[in-house]
Simulated assay, not measured.
Amino acid sequence: MGTVTRGTTNPNRLRRMDRWIAATHGTELRRAADPVAVDLGYGAAPWTAVELLARLRENAPRTRVVGVEIEPARVAAAKPYEREGLVFRHGGFEIPLPQRPLLIRAANVLRQYEEAEVAAVWERLCARLAPADPARGSRGGLLVEGTCDEIGRRHVWVALGPEGPRTVTFATRLGSLDRPSDLAERLPKALIHRNVPGEPVHSFLRDFDRAWAAAAPYASYGARQRWIRTVRDLTTDWPVTDVPSRWRQGEVTVAWGALAPGGVAAG
């Protein structure tokens, strides 16, 4: 189920997303008896699935990755790259696996869809995630859906659990950033058309730019220090959910409810 994507991809394109997943979801993967991750819509070449396996296994060595593509020719082309822990399957949003995965990564998949279609896709994919298990402290599986530029310098993604959206993460190569609102062009489909006055995501990016401008004196210490100061100032009015160790990576994560379309804008 789904539509064939353009299939464009590049090695190392999804490194920022992968590293965030490994850092924030690694504990869930390590605890699981059979941790399975899905690279949904990996494209015309299998590089992103190969890289996802390597990065997740640094934190969770038993993780298996299944690359899922709706275009049969792409699956056939990826088969020679199968190895222990990595296989490729034909399929789409139905996620053709017997078990519920602990991770579904869908990068640059929904850009070609209409905004009105996103909620149904999210619901379908979240229903395929491994369920939460409070008895062992598990929040269940994670869906990470977002968009990045062609070489992975700028990336925005939404993280969802079985219960629905949790957070939005903005990630960038700091040396290439003029101002935080440059990331607006990489907003996922659920938000990209909402970057207009009156919408929370527009207010957030406005405040992000203002905080960046106010932190200009920190630029003499480097872009990283300026970013950290900027995010620290953002926490006054916005529910930033991550910690300075992630800010140092050129990231900031905000609660989904603060940026959700039609929500109450801060500031």
Rank of each mutant, 00 (worst) to 15 (best):
R64G: 04
R194A: 08
E94L: 07
G92W: 05
D233N: 06
W227K: 10
A78T: 04
A78N: 04
V50A: 08
A33F: 08
W227S: 07
E94V: 08
L234H: 04
W247N: 14
D34T: 14
R111L: 08
R105T: 08
R15G: 10
A159G: 11
G262F: 14
R248N: 11
T48F: 00
T27H: 15
L110Y: 04
L97N: 08
R186N: 09
P80L: 03
G137E: 05
D233H: 03
R226G: 02
E145C: 11
H155K: 00
V158A: 05
R210C: 02
V118W: 09
T63A: 13
W247C: 12
V168N: 06
A255T: 06
L129W: 02
R173K: 13
R154C: 06
A78M: 06
A45I: 00
M1N: 10
D18R: 12
T167M: 01
A215F: 03
T241M: 08
V4H: 07
L142A: 05
T48P: 02
R16Q: 15
R153S: 12
I151C: 01
A76S: 05
R105L: 09
Q249R: 11
S176A: 13
E58L: 12
R13E: 00
L187E: 12
G140W: 12
T63C: 11
E114P: 00
V254G: 02
A213S: 13
G140I: 12
E115L: 06
N10G: 00
G43Y: 10
L97F: 07
Q249W: 15
E84Y: 05
P98Y: 01
T63S: 12
G267C: 03
G263V: 06
P188Q: 02
R16A: 14
A107D: 13
L40P: 10
S176G: 10
R105Q: 12
L205V: 04
L191V: 10
A45F: 07
A45N: 03
A23D: 10
E84M: 04
D18V: 00
A23T: 09
A33Q: 13
L160V: 01
A60Q: 05
L97W: 04
A77Y: 06
L174D: 07
D209Q: 04
G85F: 04
C126R: 14
P11I: 00
V68D: 08
L40Q: 06
R139Q: 14
A76P: 00
V109N: 07
D233S: 13
D34H: 14
T8F: 06
T236C: 05
A107C: 12
R31I: 02
Y113P: 01
D237I: 01
P244Q: 05
A171S: 15
E115A: 14
L53P: 08
V4A: 12
R194Y: 03
L56C: 09
G263E: 06
Y221A: 14
G41W: 03
